[in-house]
Structures are given as C-alpha cells and as structure tokens.
Design a protein around this nucleic acid. Structure first.
Lengths: 182, 182
DNA sequence: GTCTATATCAAGATAGAC
DNA sequence: GTCTATCTTGATATAGAC
C-alpha cells in the first residue's frame, strides 16, 4: 500500500474517492467503482484485497491533502490559529463525505504511509505553540464544530461564526485571550 | 409520538434501545426488535410507522436522560464546568452507540417532544454563564473529544485526560483560567 | 394485534473459464 | 486482468388472512 502504485490502482482509488465525494458513502460500492472504470466488480479484486483497503487508500489521500492545505495555510500567517481554523472548516465543508470517512473510525495505521498521521497533525501542533495536549483540545473543538455542522445538529438559529470565534479565542495564548473581545 | 404511549410501544422502544446499546447499530433491525419481544417484524408496524420513527423515540429517550444527568451534575457544584465535562464524557463513554445515534444526524425535531432539545442544552449554557456562543464552542469541544475517543481516532499514546484539562481551562471565565491549576 | 407470505432491493466476495 | 455465474447474506416494508 505504501509502495508505488500501479496505474490501474491509482485509477481505482481515484474513481472510488470521486464516487464517495459526489454521491456519498452508500454509493461507494465495489460495483459502482467498477462500473465507473468500465469493468466488472470481481475484476477489482485483482488490484485491491477488499473494500476496507480501498477505503484506507482514500483516507490516506485525504490526509495527505489536508496536511498540505493546512501547512500552506499557517505558513507565514500573522494569525496562524485563525487561518488554520478557517481552512479546516472550509476543507471539511467542501469534502463532507471524505471528512467523515477520515474521522469516524479508527485509522488503519498498518496500511497507512509511514509518518502521514503526524504530518497531518503537525500544522495544528504548530499553531498551538507545540503543546500536544492543547493541540488535541483545539483539534477536538474544530472537529466537534465541523461534525455537528455537517450532521446539521446545531439549532437552526445558531450563529456558527460566533461559536467559532468564541472557541478560537479560548485557544489563544493567555495574554491575548485575557483581552475581552469587546 | 409526543403524546402518551401505549404499554406496547414503550416495550418496543425499550427493546430497541437495549439492542442498540448492547449490540450496536447494525443489530438494531426490525426483526431483532420483534424477536426480543417474541413477535414477528411485521407486527411492529401496528405500533410504529417506520424505523426512523423508532430511532427518533430512542434519541428522545437518550436526550431526556442526558438532560437529567447533566442538570444534576452542575447543581450546586463549585466547579460546574469541570463537573459537566466529566459527566458528559462518562455518559457518552457508557452509551457509545446511543450517543452516536443522538449526534451523528439531524434531529427529527417534528417528532421530538416540545422543549426537549433546549432542556438538554440548558446545563451547558448554564455552565458557560449563559453565553450561547461560548456554550456551543464548549459543546463542540466536548463532542469532538468524545467522538474522537469513541472512534478511537486519537494516537495510541495521547493523554486524553491532559487534553480534556487543556480544553476545560480554555473555557473557564478569564480570571480563573489565568490561574494555573496547580 | 398478530400471523404468513412476499415484494423489492442490494451488498461483498469467490470459483473458475478465457 | 478480465469475464460470467454464483454464493451468502440480510434489510424495510406491505398485503391480506385470522
């Protein structure tokens, strides 16, 4: 999995990701993936051991993309925490099904490229000044906001922008956060 | 749904909740619910319109229970935010499948008892001093922590207790949060 | 309010031929 | 590396008799 892929395998993962993103998790079936490529479902099993492996490949794709996007977002930004929060939210909202696949179940770390998980986490740790506990709390906040928004679980009248601001302020270094917003 | 229930309906909801909690969402089928009660699946449809309605009844059950547990947790507690956080986490971890059903998709507010959603949210708003935006941020943090823990998505070496502490401190009133815990 | 019978649908995966 | 044929499984829900 971590080694170089055949062309065909890359096509399969690409088709699977597109299917997931465009039509949701229920549409991600071995049959549909095959159909997209103009072949039959059983043929996929010459390239992929099973569906779980295919999903892991999609997750790896998403993780790598998120890592790049977030690293770029904080680079040289005067307010990295704010930049990261905005980028995190925007990416998740643009890739709802993929985001859910990436966060709703355990990572299959054995089948994931070495170091990828850390690379994806690095921008958050950086933005939190290197404190891993604070970084996990900040991640939980962002993940909670995003997953409740994706699940449409906030009350209809909730001001999510204001909730994000309240949360971001809470994670700022003390000197800044001691300064009341208004 | 919000009106008084027949005995039979209460038994059905109870059996369904037990099935969900003990054997997970895939085990929650109309067949299994019926089997638990010693009847056949089609008979359920004399009492419940469809499966979605049954799930909503389970969610209402869980919401009411959470509302009571959390209200009791903050009542007269010197550190309501801490008490609430601990109670929130413990309840979710003890009811993982139910918690997920309650948070992973939109509430069917039309079939939920009037005022229940607000009653469940009240303890968090109270613990946040009445500020709804701050309360939503705090809820998102707690939900994020819990759902990542339930999904086993944190790295194996993560100190979740420390992450919770970091997050809770961030949501304290300013005066207190400037004061280090120990 | 319960039953049996059934419609309807769809999934992941394997065997073995070419 | 692709195919056809098939296994195995299991779900929600309705019709209509009793």
């Amino acid at each position: 999995m971590a080694e170089r892929r055949s062309e065909r395998l890359a096509q399969i993962v690409g088709a699977a990701r597109a299917l997931l993103e465009e039509r949701g998790p229920d549409a991600l079936t071995m049959r549909s993936v095959a159909e997209t490529l103009g072949i039959r479902a059983p043929s996929l099993y010459k390239h992929v051991p099973d569906k779980a492996d295919l999903e892991t490949a999609i997750v790896a794709d998403g993780l790598a993309e998120m890592a790049d996007v977030h690293a770029a977002a904080i680079a040289g930004h005067p307010d990295p925490l704010l930049a990261l929060a905005q980028t995190y939210r925007a990416w998740a909202l643009h890739h709802p099904h993929l985001y859910r696949l990436m966060t709703a179940k355990p990572l299959d770390r054995d089948r994931l490229p070495e170091g990828l998980e850390d690379r994806a986490a690095a921008p958050i740790v950086d933005a939190c000044g290197g404190d891993p506990d604070r970084a996990r709390a900040a991640w939980a906040f962002a993940h909670g906001m995003v997953s409740l928004e994706l699940a449409d679980r906030f009350p209809p009248d909730a001001d999510l922008g204001a909730a994000w601001s309240a949360g971001i302020d809470a994670y700022r270094p003390m000197e800044v956060s001691a300064d009341p917003p208004r």
